[in-house]
Design a protein around this nucleic acid. Sequence first.
DNA 1: TTGACACAGTACCGTACGGTACGGTACATA
DNA 2: TATGTACCGTACCGTACGGTACTGTGTCAA
Lengths: 251, 251
Amino acid sequence: MNQQIKSAELHDNAASGQAGAGAGADAGTSVILAGELSSRQAEVLGVVLDLMVEEGDGFSMAKVCRRASCSKETLYNWFGDRDGLLTATVQWQASKVKMPGLAGGLVTADAFRDSLIAFATNWLTVITGDVSAALNRLAISHAGTGKSRLGEIVLKNGPLAMTGRLRPIFEIGVSSGLIELDSTDAALKTFFGLVVGDWQIRKLLGETTRPSATGIEINAARAVDQFLALYGAGQIPALFAAGNINTKPST
Amino acid sequence: MNQQIKSAELHDNAASGQAGAGAGADAGTSVILAGELSSRQAEVLGVVLDLMVEEGDGFSMAKVCRRASCSKETLYNWFGDRDGLLTATVQWQASKVKMPGLAGGLVTADAFRDSLIAFATNWLTVITGDVSAALNRLAISHAGTGKSRLGEIVLKNGPLAMTGRLRPIFEIGVSSGLIELDSTDAALKTFFGLVVGDWQIRKLLGETTRPSATGIEINAARAVDQFLALYGAGQIPALFAAGNINTKPST
DNA sequence: TTGACACAGTACCGTACGGTACGGTACATA
DNA sequence: TATGTACCGTACCGTACGGTACTGTGTCAA
């Protein structure tokens, strides 16, 4: 009778006549089929995302309907309840974020450094954006109430996804003899800290000053060079001499 | 007629007969007199804090009254409205957090390092606690709606307070010839990143795994040594040789 | 004793919101 | 043309919550 995105726990869902939703597939799994949205449904989620950015968690279902020109009944048929709508929106957005990778077995020091800088730049750009802030705010506030699993989802698509993507890059660096890691996990945490710094928490707390695109790149390059200074395999003096590290300009 | 904590904008407040509140003082300023709370008022704020930890922003005024055994009228007389109650609670809690400092003009390398480690340990302990998480969650969600100034307050008592306390410590390190900073702000950001890493965001997103006390200390020492490796004045090889930096154990 | 006062407890009110139901329309298929 | 369906728009309902008002009760001071 409906074509919900979520699992079939709450409503009986017969086979759907509509193309995009595919609600019948994998019934019983709690996986939300973020990739199988009709364009109309994606349009609605886009509206939800906009409202999240504008008003945080405060927007009402009625407001979504008004802005998206859809009926509440359709909304509830598609997403079950408000939480389902939020979950679908978060997952839909998460599925759109891509991170630059690094292919190949061995790599030069410059290429490795460039790859890390590209990664850090991308990450900082995402983190300091309004959409990311809105989603993280939503997930964080819901994590406080324990009433939904949004925190888990954002965590999985945020920090954990970052380390997951970064780990193979690190491995390439190790096997190329460019870095030495005592503990990969600790190194990942260090890299995260050096790149993100206090940007994210300040953004989440509402600070409006945003770094420019070039500011982000400079910050990313600085963080990467600091990381390489800490973990680089025997090339630290070279990096220092190259002026990549923030020593005094006079030096 | 009342003895509000907040500014006198909303309600007429005559001279108060009650000792602790002191609402009449400095009327017109929007400063909230967090230090001038009666014990009963502090008791109520403690209940609010507990509820924040337990339920996030979802708790109701009625629930506060029930748990604190006070009437709603009293609550509203004291704090104006719900937002005033939240603000008073946040400021009251913020006023309780103290950070270790560092006195004296010149200092040895060991004492400086110990001081930084103590600072980082303290900060990490606060950050990973439930109370801090609850307050940050509250402020972050309110920052999204733009309906209160909690984000600003927490920002001021969080990251900004940390850098404010840390800056004089850095200056002592510089004047003692222990560290060299090209940009103090950048160094503060680096220190923040190295210490906090992804602990805070993961905690805020609901991850339950908390580091132990010794784990925090190890993390803090590691972060400080990494910081000193990056900014130490000519002592980097010594630090490396001392095994303070996380090179491979075999090295 | 009497009054002022701070406070607890509770009933009450207005409203906003989540969720449901229903009528109407467009379209597709037979 | 007839039927089913996916959807929009909207009226509706129950509830929960913020905020107010009122009724006690204990305390302190004159």
